[in-house]
Design a protein around this nucleic acid. Structure first.
Lengths: 403, 403
DNA sequence: GTGAAAGCGCTAACAC
DNA sequence: GTGTTAGCGCTTTCAC
């Protein structure tokens, strides 16, 4: 997606043009910031003489100013790129040169404090250990970077265990929040607080919030970026129906979040219209093991065995394939399996999974774009992102004489 | 790993005991921070009247002080947990109550500016789209949180494309850096800058740096946390040798980073001592597809076909299995395959991969602990983390009459 | 036991 | 064109 926003001008102008150099310079700059500080825990004050501030500090804009023979304000203007008609080019160059030579880097804390905003967004994800959200982050970070924004991840409690304090994880001050579903607790809290002024940025107590993959009606967010999951599920069932499958089991995620409720409802709606459809459902923990167990149950339950397994997720589908094979069933000859998400896993297993590709990267990018729009006081575009059925080897024609 | 550090006392005391409430309160607090600020891009100044600071701001410690009828300093002391003998318990309670009622949250930018440190560490990872590093982050974040530190991820350029400016990604000011290998550029820059004062925190230009999975001799870091990869590779080759395999192909990662050089050297060393061993090697892009191609080449090369494939990585191993099967070879009957890392993928595929479990979470935790130690002026313990061979279904006895 | 005051490094309005 | 100045919100001496 090409961003609808104008490109931000780099805050600290970088004489070095090749991005290699820029990158290195910038990272290396971090090195120039160190105070051997001890945690401010109440572990009793040090008895031995209190070591004071270290002798070496990194240069401030004042140092640059002194060194360059200008005022500190001039340094700020030049490095901030706002010197257009106010500082002579020669002076500006001198300042930049000095800043570079001293290895000056603006103090972000000071800047944030002064500006009252941080150009930082929080991305709340259920757990980092998931390729899907990694891709969401990638997309969000890409758009953010293009606008000189940063993204800080907050893996919501389930991810790292109940985080004692989000300040520990999301340490930065924030300009906005992007939250995906599946972070129920946190989301409830956020929307609850935002309810007073849901649609505006800067309302009383209203930090701009964009929700991903969540109920637009309930989120209380300024914007919602959703995927057309219903279409995906319809494509899946349509595909299976076209292959002749009628006995279909839904291996559903046990996680109670909007995204899975939508998948379930879409599955139900799609199969309801399928003449002769015999539908069952098992819920499973969101893991290979969970999918395996639920599928085992679905395939060994009394009654006619399903010929197709619609899984809420690729991971579940991988488990489903294992379960089928352990029962001596061939995929897709005896039973077809579909996934959802199109993770790398989908093409790592054999047969490769027929699955629904979710544009995770794009969702993250849209989410960030929406957040930036909200922060800007604009109304972000709202449209479900299209998903695409990837037909691969795990689905095939319904066996003629099943069982 | 149980942390060697004392537990930090929460900065803002939380009357609410149940962690549910704490969590919600904390996250919700973010909502109370909003300035409808426009990006400071040079897109021309607004012609229409310059909207000033929004009317609503979140409460400051001064507001709390006024409301509670105390001085702002008292608020700071109480909420900072340093009121032990200086403020009366009654006053302290009143302050806390007021802070809670107003929804007060300390401004992190101001705190950082004042303290000169941020209690934030940067975790540089090659790309987020990788379960291994997600686990590293999890471990690091866990230890960090226990010490009231935050972790900000910086997916190094390969991950999100060449980030224009790390300040865009890692927006927070930092107290230290944890970097994994495979982030060559960034690392070179960091170690280059740190070389002047490698072993101390707070040396001139020396931001504490801990390297993960990197050459201890070259990193220039204050500490290195490594895995005993050589042992892992020895276990793999030993396992295969015990099964009778002698013709072994190494499907090596094409990524030129220390971790893979170690694996390669260990493989070479281990097979060198194996009488009658016939060893080949193919390098592969770090993907299922890459593994598939390299393995296809290895299995179809002229000469006696290898009976075992040692892959640098589970993803490569997944590709190797696919390649073998496409050639009509059964795993493990005709060819054995081993992976490395023990990602979830290893047990998602069939047969499940015999692989080396890397304690990623533990590595992240150790890295963070080491960083905290360095920041504290202590010398972190240095020891390679043990790895473990997970024997599963992808390896079996060498076929008696191979080919 | 509590308040007053200094100042972290930066930006931006305003003088000159 | 350039310099001076006033804080952003917080922590931390130091008086009282």
């Amino acid at each position: 997606m090409s961003s609808p926003f104008p490109r931000a001008v780099p805050t600290v102008s970088c004489a070095a043009h090749p991005r290699e150099v820029l990158r290195i310079t910038s990272i290396a700059s971090y090195v120039a910031w160190a105070h051997p500080a001890r945690p401010t825990t109440d572990r009793g004050d040090r008895p031995e003489g209190a070591r004071q501030v270290p002798p070496t500090t990194r240069p401030t804009s004042r140092d640059v100013a002194r060194e360059a023979g200008v005022s500190q304000a001039t340094v700020s203007l030049v490095l901030g790129g706002k010197w257009r008609g106010r500082v002579s080019p020669a002076t500006a160059d001198a300042v930049r040169e000095t800043a570079l030579r001293l290895g000056y880097r603006p103090n972000l804390a000071a800047r944030s404090l002064r500006l009252g905003r941080t150009r930082t967004a929080l991305l709340v994800v259920p757990a980092l250990t998931n390729e899907y959200f990694a891709r969401v982050h990638t997309g969000a970070a890409r758009v953010a970077a293009a606008h000189d924004f940063g993204v800080v991840l907050y893996p919501s409690p389930e991810g790292v265990g109940p985080a004692r304090d989000p300040f520990g994880s999301a340490r930065a001050a924030l300009d906005g929040v992007i939250a995906s579903s599946m972070a129920a607790d946190a989301l409830a809290a956020i929307s609850g607080e935002t309810a007073a002024a849901p649609r505006t940025a800067g309302g009383p107590g209203g930090l701009p919030l964009v929700m991903l993959d969540s109920d637009p009606a309930q989120s209380g967010a300024a914007a919602t970026v959703n995927l057309d999951l219903a279409s995906g599920m319809r494509q899946v069932t349509g595909h299976l129906a076209a292959l002749g499958h009628r006995r279909i089991a839904h291996i559903a995620s046990a996680v109670d979040s909007w995204t899975f409720r939508v998948r379930r409802a879409a599955f139900d709606a799609a199969t309801r219209d399928l003449p002769g459809a015999v539908v069952t459902r098992r819920t499973a923990a969101l893991s290979v093991e969970g999918g395996l167990r639920a599928t085992h149950d679905a395939l060994t339950a009394p009654g006619a065995r399903p010929t197709a397994l619609v899984c809420d997720d690729d991971v579940l589908a991988a488990g489903a394939c294992k379960a089928a094979r352990r029962l001596g069933l061939r995929v897709p000859l005896d039973v077809s399996v579909t996934g959802f998400d199109d993770l790398a896993l989908a093409t790592a297993v054999e047969p490769e999974l027929t699955t629904v590709r979710l544009p995770a990267d794009e969702a993250g990018a849209r989410g960030m774009a929406a957040l930036l729009a909200v922060i800007d006081g604009l109304s972000p575009q709202q449209a479900d992102l299209p998903v695409e059925l990837m037909i691969r080897g795990s689905t095939g024609p319904c066996p003629v004489e099943p069982r």
